[in-house]
Amino acid sequence: MTDYKTSDKPTELDALEFDIEDDEPFSYADFRLEDWLAFALFWLLAITLFSQFLSRYVFASPLGWTEELARYQLVTLGFIGSCMGVRKNTHIFVSLFHRWMPSGLSVIIYRCIAVCNLVFLSALAYFDLANYTAARNS
């Protein structure tokens, strides 16, 4: 995990001097399967929503399946995005208090956060599987 304790930036920054970090060179190897899947699903969702808008407001004959399909695509995109966030460690957490804590305590808290993330994501997967199984059996 990257925060101020593991970075090599100076601790005191002048308010008038901002160093803009250069972007890393682009490489297709930096993207994983879920990145490409999210990219494709995002554009598929955009096409679905555009077809819904076109059929409803231009042709005055809405396609009923586009609403439900767009909803499922958006939910799937949210789950894929959460997988990407966990892989890149860019999920939301508060790091304000870690600035003033000792390094050992900060590491323990980071590990507790990782365990909580694991438990939460496991519960999501369990309930999603249980919901899918219940819907399939009925």
Score class of each variant (00 low, 15 high):
11 T>C: 00
28 Y>G: 07
81 G>K: 02
80 I>A: 00
98 H>Q: 08
19 D>K: 01
52 Q>D: 07
75 V>H: 00
106 S>E: 10
11 T>D: 02
83 C>F: 08
90 T>E: 09
137 N>S: 14
14 D>E: 07
59 F>W: 12
54 L>Y: 14
27 S>V: 02
32 R>K: 05
124 L>R: 01
118 L>Y: 05
12 E>M: 08
28 Y>W: 09
99 R>A: 10
11 T>Y: 01
12 E>Y: 12
57 Y>F: 15
18 F>Y: 02
5 K>H: 11
86 V>A: 08
74 L>E: 00
46 A>F: 11
21 E>F: 11
25 P>M: 05
86 V>Q: 04
27 S>L: 03
57 Y>P: 12
43 W>V: 07
98 H>E: 09
100 W>Q: 11
128 D>W: 11
62 P>T: 10
106 S>Q: 13
3 D>C: 05
29 A>M: 01
74 L>W: 01
21 E>C: 12
65 W>K: 07
39 F>P: 03
120 F>L: 14
81 G>R: 04
66 T>E: 03
128 D>Y: 14
38 A>H: 06
6 T>H: 06
105 L>T: 14
87 R>L: 10
129 L>Q: 11
130 A>D: 13
41 L>E: 00
105 L>R: 11
37 L>I: 13
60 A>Y: 09
62 P>Y: 04
116 C>H: 09
66 T>N: 06
4 Y>V: 12
84 M>W: 00
117 N>K: 02
97 F>V: 15
43 W>T: 06
52 Q>T: 07
53 F>M: 10
106 S>D: 11
31 F>Y: 13
69 L>V: 08
18 F>Q: 09
135 A>E: 07
127 F>P: 03
17 E>P: 00
17 E>K: 00
55 S>K: 02
58 V>K: 08
57 Y>N: 15
25 P>F: 03
106 S>Y: 06
90 T>L: 12
101 M>W: 04
36 W>L: 13
9 K>P: 06
103 S>F: 08
116 C>W: 10
128 D>H: 15
11 T>W: 00
95 S>C: 07
21 E>M: 12
14 D>Q: 07
109 I>K: 05
91 H>Q: 10
71 R>G: 04
86 V>Y: 05
72 Y>A: 03
120 F>H: 09
133 T>Q: 08
64 G>V: 13
43 W>P: 03
131 N>S: 15
12 E>N: 12
121 L>T: 10
6 T>M: 06
132 Y>L: 10
108 I>R: 12
126 Y>L: 15
57 Y>V: 14
122 S>T: 15
103 S>L: 09
87 R>D: 09
45 L>S: 07
29 A>C: 05
126 Y>Q: 11
40 A>G: 08
115 V>R: 06
56 R>C: 04
10 P>W: 01
63 L>P: 02
52 Q>R: 08
9 K>I: 13
121 L>Y: 09
